[in-house]
Amino acid sequence: ELSWTAEAEKMLGKVPFFVRKKVRKNTDNYAREIGEPVVTADVFRKAKEHLG
């Protein structure tokens, strides 16, 4: 699991709890794919757009 900024964690907190774990995993995987060592708010937004 990658490191997350406080802002990205806050955004994740707005995701319904029953899918939060999956969203975190998918976002981590997306960040790795694009070469990001940390999940930022920008990476979170891009993952959301990319993953739907």
Rank of each mutant, 00 (worst) to 15 (best):
H50F: 11
S3I: 14
A31Q: 00
W4I: 00
E9A: 07
A6E: 13
A8G: 02
G13C: 13
V15R: 03
A8R: 00
H50K: 10
G13Y: 10
L2Q: 05
N26S: 11
V15N: 03
G35A: 05
D42H: 07
K22W: 15
G13S: 15
N29M: 13
K14V: 06
A31C: 07
P37R: 10
R20K: 05
V43S: 02
P37G: 09
P37F: 12
K48M: 15
S3G: 08
E33I: 10
D28N: 10
F44A: 03
A8M: 00
K21D: 15
G35P: 02
F17K: 11
S3W: 11
K25T: 12
K14P: 03
F44D: 01
E49Q: 11
K46I: 05
T40L: 01
N29P: 00
E36C: 08
A31V: 03
R24V: 03
R45Y: 07
E36N: 04
Y30T: 02
K10W: 11
F18N: 13
I34G: 04
E33A: 14
L2D: 03
P37L: 13
K25W: 14
E36M: 08
W4G: 00
H50W: 11
G52A: 14
R24A: 05
G13K: 15
A8S: 03
K46M: 09
K21L: 13
W4P: 00
R45E: 10
K25N: 11
A47K: 02
D42M: 06
T27E: 00
K25Q: 14
V23L: 09
T40E: 01
H50L: 10
V39H: 01
E33V: 09
K22G: 07
M11E: 09
V19I: 14
S3K: 15
F18L: 10
T27R: 02
K10F: 12
E33F: 11
L51S: 09
R32L: 08
G35E: 05
F18T: 09
K22P: 04
E1C: 13
G13Q: 15
K48H: 12
A41Y: 05
T40R: 02
P16H: 07
I34E: 06
R24N: 02
L2M: 11
R20P: 01
V38I: 12
K22A: 13
F17N: 09
K25D: 13
K14N: 09
N29C: 10
R32I: 08
E1G: 13
M11S: 04
W4Q: 00
L51R: 14
K48T: 14
D42F: 04
K10Y: 13
A31Y: 00
V15A: 05
V19N: 13
T5W: 01
L2H: 04
I34L: 11
H50I: 11
M11K: 04
